[in-house]
Design a protein around this nucleic acid. Sequence first.
DNA 1: ATTATTACTTTTGTTTTGCAAGCAAAGATA
DNA 2: TATCTTTGCTTGCAAAACAAAAGTAATAAT
Lengths: 151, 151
Amino acid sequence: MEYKFRSECPITSALDILGDKWILVIIKLMLIQDKKTFKEFTESDEAIATNILASKLKYLEEVGIITKSQLPDNKKTNLYLLTEKGLALTPIIVELSVWSDENLREHNKIMKESPEIEIMKSDKAAFVKMKQKNYKAKIALITGLKDNSLK
Amino acid sequence: MEYKFRSECPITSALDILGDKWILVIIKLMLIQDKKTFKEFTESDEAIATNILASKLKYLEEVGIITKSQLPDNKKTNLYLLTEKGLALTPIIVELSVWSDENLREHNKIMKESPEIEIMKSDKAAFVKMKQKNYKAKIALITGLKDNSLK
DNA sequence: ATTATTACTTTTGTTTTGCAAGCAAAGATA
DNA sequence: TATCTTTGCTTGCAAAACAAAAGTAATAAT
């Protein structure tokens, strides 16, 4: 597949893929809130419309950030899982959390407080690794396969 | 000013502010490519349309990520500068660079190679501090004031 | 066999983005 | 001092993305 990029800049190119209202929210739902089926995504707090969800999931699969699969004993429910390329977005999610915690509380008064954010700040790299490891472990449980199922 | 947030989630709230095609590109132009006037922004590789640029700059000022000012001896040219809140976005820019470098080269063949990215990866926190310090130093030179001019 | 659930698609309307042109104020030039 | 150029926009219109609501097909549960 061919995608249009605005420039030779790596940052701008990343935003050509990730820079919209929903892509990183969907990644976050998968990584932090364990969402993995179409139904689960629609039930999230963000209330994404089904037509938009369908188009974004298709796009994410095309770009190689997620995979679409099924469990052997269920032909109805689809499983959407992060690939390595998708899991590699974890540091970005972490930095968005930190910036938000430190700069957005004045704008969004009802924003959730969490003790996790302090752990995150104290050692970002360790937090990223932990989240990625946890994600892979959960996937392994669900699919009944080992860690290399995502590779 | 009041802004609409989709949820209580800090990550989603960050994306309510930053999640579009242009906001983080403009931040990057300021932080990495030293752009600071309307003219300079329009001359960038990304070729942003003037109506969109004007509306995004206005929005960024409202949210407190940038300031709009003038030099004492020039009433024509406006100076757009990052605030502390804007400078705090540096880690996000860095992580976007890293992800792009490692995951987007297959999609965007003409993406720029840079030795800077290795320095960045070897110590992200140090790189972030260095960029922020450099930015403040440049601003101090331009405005003729000291480092605290942004605070 | 009937009902409910899951994963969408379709339709229609609104908002955001983009292109091209135009314009006013400030500054530079003759 | 008059006019030419630069800067920083705004306006009008077309295209694309986003959104709400309803509908549908396949599978699974009762």
